[in-house]
Design a protein around this nucleic acid. Structure first.
Lengths: 195, 195
DNA sequence: ACCTGAACACCGTTCAAGT
DNA sequence: ACCTGAACACCGTTCAAGT
């Protein structure tokens, strides 16, 4: 009878609870382990119960994606020069995305990301570009280039279990180094703005 | 070695035939329409018959991916300056990948691509970087950066049915323009090489 | 409004068997 | 060696019904 849940006490399932469980599942078993059915069983509900709180799996993943971006550290306003701010912002974005590496390709199979956190990061980047003296329409291109570059690099970076050795594959440290070089090249190119 | 048709009127299924049908299916119905089962039915065989010619779906997609890269136009050796060659090579790669846009995220969920065509493009790029006077270890970083940038941009570019209008979404032409700006910034940054 | 059992319409892949 | 029918172990999602 009593299967571990007091009768009369409603499940109290909510959108946030579903999202939280999805995040846990993702962290534990990767993107392959995140299915509507395992998610439901983790929450002790029938699979179709999820559809009372989430439109479909795509919407869930989109929410998850934007959630992850909430961890990006935005540099404090005007405490250092804008180029340094851009560098730090992109580095933080890269780090956060690499920590959720298998989610990033899903980012790309959608059209980027349109959640509030993504929006915020775009706005901050645009501000910094303006402060750096980059005029329109160059700033729009630069915004796009920096975002695509950062997400693209994150998608290419894998967490190897350190036991690799089978073939020559760039380590996470090598990828980070290349990423930083490229950001530097882009920022100098943008600031010279000689197109 | 008997390279002729199988005796009788049997299917005579081969690796190349499977790959070709997969490419057709992809072109007609996109990546969502490419399943082992629809592929088998298109070839008039049972689904499991495919496994006599392909290890699994991942291996098939990998082969498809490298196949696509065969369409990239490699600039003729030494007819113009290396920077222009790099620009043309990346532009051609971008164009080819955008033509198969929904395949690109699969690129990223794997670790890049290790087929012969991908290898060739990497070698050519490296040659051009050397001709441009970029020394090691900067050249290795530059190679990685250029590849990631190009594939990342392709993943972000969508073919909109021109009927969009619902929201502000960059057109293919805008993406191409941004892509070219970014390549310019990267190449100037790389050539200045002031890390 | 929210959850359930059951079902629908799929997947990729394996197995034993036939030729 | 290559193909088949059948099955396994899954998917996401919908539907009618119960509370």
């Amino acid at each position: 009878m009593d299967r571990g849940r007091a009768p009369g006490h409603r499940a109290g399932l909510t959108h946030a609870a579903v999202l939280g469980a999805a995040r846990d599942l993702l962290a534990e078993h990767g993107v392959a382990g995140l299915t509507m059915r395992t998610l439901a069983s983790r929450l002790d509900v029938a699979p179709n119960a999820l559809y009372s709180h989430v439109a479909n799996k795509t919407a869930l993943v989109d929410a998850l994606l934007d959630d992850v971006l909430g961890a990006v550290i935005v540099p404090a306003d005007g405490v250092q020069n804008p180029a340094t701010g851009l560098r730090q912002l992109m580095a933080s974005t890269y780090e956060v995305l690499v920590a959720h590496a298998d989610l990033v390709p899903l980012y790309l199979s959608r059209q980027g990301a349109h959640g509030p956190n993504a929006q915020r990061l775009g706005d901050v980047t645009m501000d910094l570009l303006r402060q750096a003296g980059v005029p329109e329409p160059t700033a729009s291109d630069a915004l796009r280039v920096l975002i695509v570059y950062t997400i693209g690099f994150a998608a290419f970076t894998r967490h190897l279990p350190a036991t690799s050795g089978s073939e020559r594959e760039p380590s996470a440290a090598e990828m980070l180094s290349s990423f930083n070089h490229g950001i530097g090249w882009l920022l100098t190119g943008i600031q010279q703005n000689q197109v």
